[in-house]
Computed example of a mutant assay.
Amino acid sequence: MPPGHVADRLAALVAERESQIVLGLDPDPARLWPDAGGDPDPAVAVLAHCRAVIDAVAPAVVAVKPQVACFERLGAPGWAALAATVEHARAQGLFVLADGKRGDIDVTATAYAHGFFDAGGLNADALTVNPYMGLDTLRSFAAVARPAGGGLFALVRTSNPGAADLMDEPLARGGTVWERVAELVAELGDEHRGPESGLADVGAVLGATQPEHLARARELLPHAIFLLPGVGAQGGRVEDLAPAFAPGRAAGLVTASRSIVRAHEQSGGAPAAAARAEAERLRETAWALG
């Protein structure tokens, strides 16, 4: 990956492209673009589909977020397709955020991190991680990511309905579970902020489906980059996300997957043109909030 602090690199890319939109890639071999998914080998078809989607929307987005599980289910050929997808995104000048949601004890967390950040592995710019085993696991990821120039996005308050089952539970000390996680993420991220952007290398995943939490999250995480899934198919609206961008445009990344890739199913027309139009619409809407 390019040199420099990950948050500074991302902020520069956001400014250059005038976009805060992250393209989510969640390929389903049964629902690929018709022109790209004809190969009988599902991994080959998935790779062709992902390349076509990236080519269509790259000018409107700043990053890609491949959902690792969608590639892993195809076995070793799927991992090869993921690596090739990452290379293709890099060739388009895009930031690569691997959506793996990894989390385990220190030894295993370190091994996961090497697999995603090392040049001999996926060589991603950032990785989503699960912080619910505690700060020591996050530090193990950071210990590998930081020397490699990478960043982390920790799950803080997610977009799925079941998030309320645990993350919104009150604590005896006051506040909720997700607010305590936010404090830990802020503690770790503030150890390593970008000298140019002032943003931390440990960001927070906060569901766009619950925008009422964003103002409080920004109080707890003043220097974190927010990754905001749930726009489009899950019901989140870009217009409701303004608190995320308080420290600057690069402090909020709006991720959209199905609403971009399957835009043609709603609007008709060629998949590539429909995807580009939806990505541009999201880009313009989010940019206006900054």
Results as ranks from 00 to 15, higher is better:
L214S: 10
L221V: 13
I225Y: 02
L228Q: 10
H213D: 09
P229K: 05
F226I: 05
R218D: 01
L220V: 13
E219N: 08
V231T: 11
P211A: 05
H223N: 15
P211I: 03
A224M: 05
Q234P: 06
E239T: 05
P211R: 01
G230C: 08
E219S: 13
G232K: 08
E219P: 12
V231R: 01
P229L: 08
E219Y: 09
H223F: 02
A215V: 12
L214C: 08
Q210R: 14
R218M: 02
G232E: 09
H223I: 03
H223K: 11
A215H: 10
L221N: 07
R237E: 14
E212H: 11
R237V: 00
P222D: 09
L227P: 05
A224H: 05
L220E: 06
A217R: 13
T209L: 03
A215T: 15
T209C: 04
P211Y: 03
G235S: 07
F226L: 13
P222N: 13
L221F: 14
E219H: 10
E239W: 00
I225F: 00
H213K: 00
L227T: 00
Q210M: 00
A217G: 15
A215F: 05
V231M: 11
V231H: 03
H213A: 14
T209V: 01
E239H: 00
L220N: 13
A215Y: 07
P229T: 11
I225Q: 03
T209N: 06
V238H: 03
P222Y: 13
R237Q: 13
V238C: 02
A233V: 15
Q234M: 08
G230L: 11
I225M: 15
L221G: 05
Q210K: 14
G236M: 06
L214G: 07
A217P: 13
I225N: 00
H213F: 12
G230S: 06
Q210G: 00
A217N: 11
E212L: 04
G236N: 06
Q210F: 14
F226P: 08
G235T: 07
E219T: 15
L227I: 03
L214F: 11
I225L: 15
L221T: 06
H213S: 11
Q234C: 10
H213T: 14
G232R: 08
A217S: 15
L227S: 01
H213W: 07
L220G: 13
G236W: 06
G235N: 08
G232S: 12
V231C: 07
Q210D: 03
P211F: 04
R218L: 04
Q210N: 03
E212M: 04
R218E: 01
L221Q: 08
L220D: 01
P229G: 08
G236K: 10
V238P: 01
G230H: 11
V238T: 12
G232W: 09
T209D: 02
H213C: 14
V231S: 03
R216H: 04
V231W: 02
A215I: 04
G236D: 05
V231N: 07
L227R: 01
F226M: 12
R216E: 15
R218F: 02
G230R: 06
G235C: 06
E212G: 07
A224L: 11
I225T: 15
P211K: 04
R216D: 14
